[in-house]
Amino acid sequence: MTSLRLEFDVSGNNFASAGTASDEVKKKLKMLGINPVDIRKVAIAMYEGEINMVIHAGGGKAIVDIYEDKIDIILKDNGPGIPDISLALTEGYSTATDTIRDLGFGAGMGLPNMKKYSDEFKIDSKVGEGTTVYMTIYFG
């Protein structure tokens, strides 16, 4: 099945610009006439992922494949990795600093939100090497 591929470099140096990739994907899905409820699920899941990459991993790459009936999102970073994935998926658990909390994030809802709004969700992570998150959201 053919897909429309979008690739983004997520900068780790500029917190203010975090969310620009999600914004681009949201615009593209709107243009393609995808249902607004699905667009919002994609936007939230990807935006939280982008914020996570900026907060915890110094940036990374986002690869998005849009199909007729679904979207696949891969978020890959070369950050410190997640030692305990099930703990990281617990609502309210966060390793974010007070500085990040002052910016409105780090409530321990990032990964749980990404999982909640995805139909398929998987994390591969190796401490010292990085983390890759795979999310699929079906349309309709």
Binding site: F15, G106, A107
Partner: peptide, 25 residues
């Protein structure tokens, strides 16, 4: 003031009241 909470709990609200003041709002 926590944007993660807005992303987690908000559904169809049209007004966001916040004391947080940065582009992520």
């Amino acid at each position: 003031d926590m944007m993660s909470d807005v992303l987690a709990f908000v559904k169809d609200q049209a007004l966001l009241i916040s004391g947080l003041c940065n582009p992520q709002v």
